[in-house]
Nucleic acid binder design. Structure first.
Lengths: 199, 199
DNA sequence: ATGAGATCGAACCGATCGGTACGATCTGCG
DNA sequence: CGCAGATCGTACCGATCGGTTCGATCTCAT
């Protein structure tokens, strides 16, 4: 929300406020499910202000996806960092964090992946690819620290579990999806680290 | 395409033709990415005909999602049936079929799940839930025939892998996603069937 | 031959879309 | 004080949206 009527102390603040307020609206209603006019009305900002900051509705969408992707990744990385040294504990912490996310009443799947399912344009696809890369980096670190025989392959399997759990939790009414994914992840981790071929 | 100008031999044929022609258009462009006018023009049918058969754009979308869901499920079931008796072979066959699907140049993820990511209305959500139920039924059969200790839990883990592989294949440029999911699925199957608790 | 019904093509509807323009207002800086 | 610029509110733009209507055309069954 623009702090007052005229110039706020910091235009950058307005931009951030718009992003923060627009994110849940675009997430809940879908990128095409809410128009710019209603968006501005709910945010409490004029269209001119929004367009000066983001140029285009797509520009706003791209900016908000970027922020969202970074925030989620940071959140998962923090969960890993808080889980101690054991790679298995770190992996479990990721899926515990996912469960927490999935249980939020407003949960509707991953905003970034949902966006890619709607807009097939190149910008959104690139953001989504980077988003998955962030996840993959996190999981690769864990796989490497665990001493997996093929860390990259294991990390991709774990990424499939993370994304699969999110999709299933979003679209299928069943409880404990994240827990089942967690169990599967730990089995894959144990299998990939056991019996190193040359030992 | 309506076979001729006036009454076709069978109006049911027209309905099916509309569905078949509309499906790839809605899939490629997104449900909101193409309007009814252009849709009708590309299909080669008048708006009046489309609206008489489906009542609403949402009606068309629902009908096409239903058909699509059934077709994909049947296709996977056929792959299972062709894989012989061994549950592990049947499971592997599912992921081989997925890989084949993911490699199609027009692949953009699962149409049903994508639709749920766009339209949050109740109808689409119900279709998507049933879609996942179909997958789950297929996987539960395999888990039971394999003698898994907890077939339902294993089936859900496999469902997570199926959906996860599809999402990752759609949005992340990496090869062999289905193969990695397949390997993970076989590990989970082996783990779930080994060491029956009371033996 | 006639009538029922399916279809076309095009015109038409009100609503909404993304985006722009404008005059007024307010703030911070020099 | 006065200017630059950020913001508001509103009106406006052309385009497109989903959906309806109508007259003409064609097929089939009677």
């Amino acid at each position: 929300m623009p702090v007052t009527k005229g110039t706020t102390i910091d235009p950058e603040r307005t931009r951030a406020a718009i992003l923060q307020a627009a994110t849940p609206l675009l997430y809940q209603r879908g990128l095409d499910g809410i128009g710019v006019a209603e968006l501005c009305a709910r945010i409490g900002v004029s269209k001119e202000t929004l367009y000066r900051h983001f140029g285009t509705k797509d520009g706003l969408v791209a900016a908000m996806l970027e922020v969202r992707s970074q925030r989620v990744s940071d959140w998962l990385a923090a969960a890993v960092a808080a889980a101690g040294e054991d790679p298995a504990d770190q992996l479990a912490a990721i899926f515990d964090a996912l469960r927490q996310w999935h249980e939020e009443p407003t949960f509707r799947g991953c905003a970034v992946v949902n966006a890619a399912a709607q807009h097939h344009d190149q910008t959104v696809r690139a953001i989504t690819a980077r988003h998955l890369d962030r996840y993959l980096g996190l999981l690769t670190d864990i796989a490497e620290r665990a001493g997996a025989a093929a860390p990259a392959a294991l990390a991709r399997q774990l990424l499939i579990l993370v994304e699969g759990a999110t999709v299933v939790a979003a679209h299928h009414r069943t409880t404990g999806t994240a827990d089942q994914a967690r169990e599967a992840a730990l089995i894959l981790l144990a299998t990939a680290t056991a019996t190193p071929p040359g030992s």
